[in-house]
Amino acid sequence: MRIKVKLFGGLKLPFKHQENVGEYWITLEKDYTIENLINLLSLSGKPLIIVVNGFICNDLQKKLEDGDFVSLFPPIAGG
């Protein structure tokens, strides 16, 4: 399956990718979870805000589906 990863707030892909705009389509095996994705991105153990298809995600075991948009942020605030 293919999902779109969007990285913000200084987060970067740990591997080379032809797209270079902070938004990357990547291909994953079936049954991939958010936690698997975070490990793949070398972000495990870091505090993150995770948004999946516009919804804030609190469940690292949530299974990703083909076409999902996953946005990742470090802890941030403002206003």
Binding site: K6, F8, G9, G10, I49, V51, G54, S71, F73, P74, P75, I76, A77, G78, G79
Partner: peptide, 16 residues
């Protein structure tokens, strides 16, 4: 977060 990007670091997450 705030030192590096300022309060405007919120634009992307509020948009997302």
């Amino acid at each position: 977060g705030l030192p590096a990007y300022g309060t405007n670091v919120l634009t992307n997450i509020i948009n997302e």
